[in-house]
Design a binder for these strands. Structure first.
Lengths: 222, 222
DNA sequence: CGATGAAATGAACGATCGTTCATTCATATT
DNA sequence: AATATGAATGAACGATCGTTCATTTCATCG
């Protein structure tokens, strides 16, 4: 979507005028809008707020996005495409043990949310601020991501590795649980990122009926 | 907080003029604002929107609430006080088995969220729309609710009934998981409320290392 | 160097925002 | 019936909203 090409070692394109400056501003707008939308909500943030953070006037934003709504849609679409692509790169292949794939999913999800908390929060909370057309498209992307986890749970249920009632419901429950980390995580807090990851991964495993460690097993003491 | 007294069989108060009409309007404002804030977000809803839903002009709202902000604060405070009181009424007493208390918590939480989805959503999502003073007060109420679950997890860990790493983190994770039901629940959907409750209760139990049913046990077949 | 065109500007637009206020309406008490 | 009082009204306020547009700035290419 959008242009999004030459950033460094630029040469080919750009007929005249400026070249990479516009793209730099567009990215700055994205970053500013992401932070502000996540902090205050889409409709509580004005175009002038975004422009001020970029260091530009509100009217300049319209050289890069046709409307405020399109900034939000762009942020969500970009985030969800990257998220799903990164997940597919992080997941073991489909024939790996479901327990391993679930653990990888949980770890990926929490870790990704540490780094992209604003984008994640936005994409889950501001669907209601989108016009119907944009909303349907973004919702489909979100559904594709959720389908990955649903598939893992279904396979685990089918193979007997997991002891669960309903893969669809449990997928939503797990995603909500893992996503919640962004609401309380504090970089200066008591626990390191790695420690928090491990706790969530272990919870996810137990929630599908797995023992303490990877596979099945039982009666593992402490 | 506020007046909130005589509604029926009124007699004592109300010096002159009208009596219960004002309180009825105030409640209608609360209901309208709750639905609109939950659907569109605090700052996307105007006082005129709320008034229109009540069947009154915007200026009439100021006979009942000093400002828009106070409607939101009132909704959150009322909700959180009721929520915590209802939880305390639903929880087995403190010397009951932690597994039983956890199951009761999970069932209560999901069930309450079915009925009060709007208020719940509001109180978890619109903290950022509150002024610092209101935010601190509401946040304390939320913390009191979360502390109930944290206490259950700590007791289960202490007694050895639960196999968990960190009660504080797991409390936040469980609440996020249970609260998430409001984001996808559809009254016309595939599953009944009772079925969904049971799935969440079972997941909560497994997530703290319990077997399929209430107590510990292990190697439970299916 | 002058031409070119994207990027940024400042002013302005119509609309809508939260809120105020003098006034009117409606009701319960005396 | 007269009165007192809370509730609702309609108009208006200053501010701010998203957006448009003619103009200016400025880095690049021929």
């Amino acid at each position: 979507m959008e242009a999004f090409a030459d950033k460094q070692a630029g040469s080919a394109s750009a007929s005249a005028g400026t070249t990479a400056r516009g793209e730099a501003t567009r990215d700055a707008i994205r970053r500013a809008a992401e932070a502000l939308f996540a902090a205050h909500g889409f409709s509580a943030v004005s175009m002038r707020d975004i422009a001020a953070r970029v260091g530009v006037r509100a009217s300049a934003l319209y050289n890069h996005f046709p409307a405020k709504q399109d900034i939000l849609a762009d942020l969500m679409e970009t985030h969800l495409l990257r998220l799903t692509a990164a997940l597919d790169a992080a997941l073991p292949q489909a024939d790996a043990p479901p327990a391993e794939r679930l653990a990888a999913f949980a770890r990926f999800h929490v870790r990704y949310h540490f780094d992209e908390a604003d984008a994640v929060f936005l994409s889950y909370m501001e669907l209601r601020s989108l016009e119907p057309g944009n909303r349907a498209r973004i919702n489909a992307l979100r559904g594709a991501y959720e389908a990955r986890l649903r598939g893992i749970l279904r396979e685990g249920q089918r193979s007997g590795a997991f002891r669960i009632e309903d893969p669809a419901v449990e997928a939503m429950a797990l995603i909500a649980m893992l996503t919640g980390v962004t609401t309380w995580y504090d970089p200066a807090g008591r626990l390191s990122r790695a420690a928090i990851e491990n706790i969530y991964v272990a919870m996810a495993a137990r929630s599908v009926g797995l023992g303490q460690e990877g596979e099945a097993s039982c009666s593992s003491g402490a």
